[in-house]
Simulated assay, not measured.
Amino acid sequence: MSFSPCPDPVPGDAESVDAIETLIVPRAVDLGEMEVRRALPSTQRQMVGPFIFFDQMGPAEFLTDQGIDVRPHPHINLATVTYLFEGEIRHRDSLGSDIAINPGAVNWMMAGRGIVHSERTSEERRQTGQKLFGIQTWVALPENAEERDPDFIHHGATDLPIVTDHGVEARLIAGEWMGGASPLKTASETLYADVQLQAGRSVPIDPTYEERALYTIAGTIKIAGQSFGPNQLLVLRPGDAITVKAAEDARFMLFGGAPMGGPRYIWWNFVSSRAERIEQAKEEWRQGRFETVPGDEEDFIPLPENASKPRRATGGVAYP
């Protein structure tokens, strides 16, 4: 998805607890076709492990003849990960990929040296209408993988392991947790899981990964006796083992991994360890030198001409 303008998330007013390093409450922005909540990047926190962008899409309901139309746009030096709870998105890219993204599947688009993609509602779904709800994240790539060949990897819902334990159910999108391991091959150490807890049940989150965060989707969870409702990003303190308990049936995304070896610059849809690489990508898009999307060649998102300069991002601090 394209990095459209969105105000920085603002911190919540809940009192901090020892286990929580940073609490971010994303501000909802109406993009016309649906509501988006952006948790990363923010003024409070730029990255968690390799995750540099975290958007909640919806929930939204489209009537007949309605849908999303994210026109072809470019990415470099990152991977996008689209994960849906409800609905369907048609993904097409400059590699020739043309696939329906459905709930429970993982769709990992490795931009590498450059890729272009579009995300739209299919004609079939427009005829029937649909609900749409999901998460899209961007994962920064280590420097030795930033300029690799682009790729698109799809694992269906039945390909991803689901681990269960006394009222806990977790689908492993990336990485290893609770004895399960995702088949997705990532460029750096990455954890990403869709976790559901029955009311009254709890799950430990050990400090196996250096950086970890939770994004609450539904219900209320408790950590160290404090309650957190939906649509909150909780960055956990490194090295601390915590326990998450469900005050009611709850769902959250657990994500993180190893931090990048250095800062990343982010501008529009471009992420890179080098500011000059972003300037190069801007000029390539402006001059039409990226590959086009087969079947979607006639449309595109123009380069924003009045946007600010690339921001330098680290795990915790934003720099101009």
Rank of each mutant, 00 (worst) to 15 (best):
G114E: 08
E211H: 08
A313D: 00
D194F: 02
Q136G: 12
N269E: 06
E279Y: 10
W177P: 05
P183V: 14
Q136I: 11
D13G: 14
L23K: 01
A111I: 09
R92G: 05
G295M: 08
F133H: 15
G180T: 08
E61D: 10
T82R: 03
A241S: 14
R71N: 10
H73T: 14
A193I: 07
S2V: 15
I101Y: 00
D151M: 11
P5D: 13
T82C: 07
G129A: 11
P103W: 08
P7E: 11
G262R: 05
S308D: 07
G180K: 03
F133D: 14
G12N: 07
E305M: 14
K282T: 14
H75W: 05
G288R: 06
G134F: 03
G67M: 11
V116T: 15
T128I: 15
H75T: 11
G316D: 13
V235F: 05
D55Y: 03
V48N: 04
Y319E: 15
P7H: 09
I301Q: 04
N144P: 00
E176F: 07
P7N: 11
A193G: 04
A213C: 10
W268F: 08
A241D: 01
G256R: 01
S118L: 10
I68H: 02
E284S: 13
D18T: 12
A105R: 04
L172Y: 00
T314I: 12
P50H: 04
G219S: 07
Q196T: 12
A174D: 01
S272L: 05
P26D: 09
K282Y: 05
V244I: 14
D55G: 08
M260G: 07
A281I: 05
L40Y: 08
G32P: 05
R264D: 05
V195C: 07
T186C: 09
T220S: 03
Q226R: 15
L184M: 13
E297W: 01
S182H: 05
L84R: 04
S94A: 09
F85S: 09
L132N: 06
L31Q: 05
E169H: 05
A187M: 10
D18F: 09
H75A: 11
T158E: 13
A111V: 10
F62G: 06
F3T: 13
G200H: 01
R126Y: 00
E143G: 06
P161S: 13
Y265P: 02
Q66F: 03
G316V: 11
A281C: 06
V139M: 15
R148F: 03
I242D: 02
R148G: 13
